[in-house]
Every structure is written in C-alpha cells, then in structure tokens.
Design a protein around this nucleic acid. Structure first.
Length: 270
DNA sequence: CTCCTATCCTGCGAGC
DNA sequence: TGCTCGCAGGATAGGA
C-alpha cells in the first residue's frame, strides 16, 4: 500500500539506479491502460534520451528528462523494480530497456496506478492542484489552520485532502491523529492552535519515521526482491481494532469516516 | 464552494 | 475442504 513514504523510497531508489543516466532503448507495453490509458507514443519519444533524475511530488513519481516528464503513480499495488528476462511476473505491465542492459519494470496487480507524460509540469492536471508538501516549508500548524480551520468535515478527511496537504493517506491519517491525541471525528472549528501545531508536527514525524524505516534498504526496495521496510509493524492504531492501546491499554476502536476505516484510542484521543 | 458517494481493480482473509 | 463475499486504498467525477 504505497503512501508517501513508500513513494519517496521508490524515488530515491530509482534515482540511484539511474545515476549513470543510461539511454532509453525501448519500451514494451503489455496493455493499453492502467487506471487511465497509457500515452505510449508520447512515452516512446523518450527513446534515445535519458532520465536526468527521479523525484517525488505528492504520491507521484516524476522521471525528468530533457524533453519532458514521465509521471508514475503507484496506486494501491504498483511498484517499479530492476528486472530481467528471467524475472517476469504476472501483472508486469510496462518494461523500459536501457543501453547497457538495465531493465525497469512496472508491476501493478490492481491497476490503480498511472503512467503519464507531461512536457510542462506546471500545466499537468495531475500535479497543479496538489497542496503543500508536509515535509517541506511552509507546512506547519499555523498554515494548516489557515487553510483548513473553516472546513466542516472531520479533521481526518481534511488532512487526507491532497489539495491541502499531499501524502497523508488513510494509514498515516489515523497514525498522526493518534500521536497528536486528536479524535479523527473532531471538527476543525473546535481545534486549538496548540492542537494544529501538534498535528502538523506529528504528521511530519510519522512520515519521516516511515521513510527512515524503509530507507535502510533503499536499493533493495526497487530491486528484484523488493523488500518493503518494516514500518507496518510499527502502526499504533491502524488495523488494530480491539487490540489494546500501546499507551493506555484501552481497546482501539474502528469507525468509518467518509467511507474509510479509521482507528483511534477513545481514551488517548479527545 | 464544500462535502460526500460511487467508481475503478485484484487479492486475500473471514465466514459458512 | 472449497466456495462466496466484502474490504482494502487514491484520485476523480458527479450529485446534493
């Protein structure tokens, strides 16, 4: 389940793998679309060019070249890996062959992922409505309150709105609210400045910790074996309904907010 | 404008 | 044991 940390780890791993800037020789597409149609002809313009770097914006991977940008979203089950002729797996949808023998493969069983092209990122509909990066300035409690303080929806829905702040998915929304001691159902109008500050700092902290947990094996992550870090073992409330709160031993509760499972401790979170 | 719901897809685990 | 069914998640369109 790639959330921001997994995408960040992907970006770092891919950037490292492409550090020598190998020239793209050939694309192989095993299907016409993922979530949306794959712009095959536009992507094939990249043949003869190289990726200058790979980075993350929100949950999108941006492969930068001198003629434009390949944009990849991992959806729910997407992943890139270094592959080979012998290493073929079901749901391998796209292969990129580079001079020198490197081969990258995009696999995505559930096909919620996206592969797209943009010559100008500023004009990309996928990117130009994205909100603040939580790990970069100016994201903090003051900015968050200014942007979201008048919203009427529960705070969990607010922090999951990618138009405000990117990268807080269902898992890290529950985790950061637990760390901040705020119930997911709380209305923004009833939050104090101190709580906005705490929430913003806990969002940063939980995302940074998850990146660090996966970052210990960055090169493995995008390799054939594809380890995934161990942060899922550190969730304090997510998917722990009925289990005891690690802080106070009260059973964790599960409720549905805007159609998404939400977990919290009824004693620690007010 | 704001908010909510349905939709896309496959794999997996709970329950019978 | 084998089957069915509901759920998981992000982005987006469209309705209230």
């Amino acid at each position: 389940m790639p959330e921001l940390p997994e995408v960040e780890i992907h970006a770092r791993g891919l950037d490292q793998i492409l550090i020598q800037k190998p020239v793209i020789q050939r694309f192989e597409f095993n299907r016409a679309d993922l979530r949306d149609p794959i712009p095959k002809a536009k992507l094939r313009q990249l043949v003869g060019h190289a990726f200058k770097r790979v980075y993350r914006r929100g949950k999108y991977l941006i492969f930068e070249s001198d003629i434009g940008f390949m944009i990849s979203h991992l959806g729910m089950t997407g992943s890139w890996r270094v592959s080979s002729i012998e290493d073929q797996r079901p749901h391998d949808h796209v292969h990129i062959f580079f001079e020198g023998g490197l081969q990258l493969t995009f696999r995505d069983p559930r096909r919620f992922g996206i592969l797209d092209w943009a010559t100008d990122l500023a004009k990309s509909k996928r990117l130009n409505k994205l909100g603040l990066e939580p790990l970069q300035d100016p994201f903090d409690g003051t900015v968050l309150k200014t942007l979201a303080g008048k919203r009427q929806s529960p705070i969990k829905s607010v922090i999951m709105d990618a138009g405000l702040v990117v990268g807080v998915g269902n898992i890290y929304a529950s985790e950061s609210l637990f760390r901040a001691g705020i119930r997911p159902t709380r209305k923004p109008a009833r939050m104090k400045q101190q709580e906005w500050d705490l929430l913003a700092s806990q969002i940063k902290e939980v995302l940074a910790e998850a990146i660090a947990a996966g970052g210990s094996s960055i090169s493995d992550y995008v390799s054939a074996s594809g380890g995934e870090g161990d942060f899922q073992n550190r969730f304090q409330v997510y998917d722990r309904e009925g289990a005891l709160c690690l802080r106070c031993s009260t059973p964790i509760r599960k409720i549905v907010i805007a159609g998404r499972s939400s977990f919290y401790c009824p004693a620690c979170q007010k």
